[in-house]
């Protein structure tokens, strides 16, 4: 199928769009990384959970979420389309592999990108799918909400409900310091409590999920590989975006390169520090 006949976009415009979406994702990454650092706060998860609650309920954030997914999707599709079309431009491949020096990570971008997609799917399995109720995880609930729901709900004292409640409240990290949240609720207990108090809104407890997952060595390892791939991918992406937007000149091309390397390391390390610190129990 000759997609050029369907939509006539110049090769440069396609690349501009890939770059634009990529730049948006770069900013998103920075934001996500900064947010995640709150997991390391020694407050039992209050700050991070409050943040997650905000992100899970705010309308603007919900719109932003859709934009984010669309950006990911379009960035991916456009890149693959470009890659596929570009490959066709050399129908007879060279016998000798290229020995030309090229920009770091640039030739691998489609590979790192594809692997990242795979990693993101697993990452979603760990966290986001819990929110979508596709996968079971750990939950939290606002205690006020729970009490209101308890008053409206089933008046019969169900021993299993009582058991579940006591278990959650006495668990480590169960009740928050300000008593406003009941956290670290296992999925089995959540089922029981949700059934008893159908109007209570149980949200995913990302804080405790993260802490639990990052205590397992092979999950930590997988995430470190994930962040390495992110680093490699944005090593190309950062500098490439500037070039594609025409923001490159002899005067400051070195500056852009250095900024790119710094950004790449900051993101990579900023993400990586969370599982490492959690795993080491610091």
């Amino acid at each position: 199928m000759d997609t050029n006949k369907l939509i006539k976009i110049s090769s440069i415009t396609k690349k501009l769009l890939v770059g634009l979406f990529g730049a948006f994702l770069l900013v998103f990454l920075l934001f996500h990384m900064c947010a995640n650092l709150f997991i390391l706060a020694k407050d039992g998860g209050d700050a991070y959970s409050a943040f997650c609650h905000f992100m899970g309920t705010n309308v603007i954030v919900k719109v932003f979420e859709i934009v984010l997914f669309a950006t990911f999707f379009l960035h991916m599709c456009l890149s693959c389309w470009l890659w596929w079309q570009n490959r066709k431009n050399r129908p007879v491949r060279y016998h000798q592999p290229s020995r030309t020096k090229t920009a770091k990570g640039s030739k691998l971008a489609i590979v790192t990108g594809s692997l990242l997609l795979l990693c993101i799917v697993f990452h979603f399995y760990d966290f986001y799918f819990v929110k979508m109720n596709v996968v079971k995880g750990t939950y939290m609930v606002n205690t006020e909400q729970l009490m209101i729901a308890a008053q409206k709900g089933n008046q019969e004292a169900d021993p299993s409900v009582e058991q579940a409640l006591i278990k959650c409240m006495t668990k480590e990290g169960g009740i928050s310091a300000d008593y406003k949240w009941l956290r670290n609720i296992e999925s089995a207990d959540k089922e029981v409590l949700q059934k008893a108090y159908p109007e209570a809104e149980f949200e995913p407890d990302f804080y405790n999920m993260a802490r639990q997952k990052f205590s397992v060595w092979h999950i930590v390892l997988c995430y470190l590989v994930f962040f390495f791939l992110v680093g490699l991918h944005i090593r190309h992406g950062f500098e490439s975006a500037f070039q594609t937007f025409g923001l490159n000149h002899y005067k400051y091309s070195k500056l852009i390169e250095v900024l790119g390397i710094i950004y790449c390391w900051v993101i990579c390390l900023g993400f990586a520090i969370v599982p490492i610190v959690v795993f080491l129990g610091l």
Partner: peptide, 26 residues
């Protein structure tokens, strides 16, 4: 094809024409 910013072109150009010309084109 389209540019994917690998700069192999700049590395091999016999007249050492720089990538900043591509940026200017963009």
């Amino acid at each position: 094809g389209s540019c994917t910013n690998t700069y192999a072109c700049e590395a091999e150009c016999p007249k050492q024409i720089k990538r900043q010309n591509i940026a200017r084109l963009n």
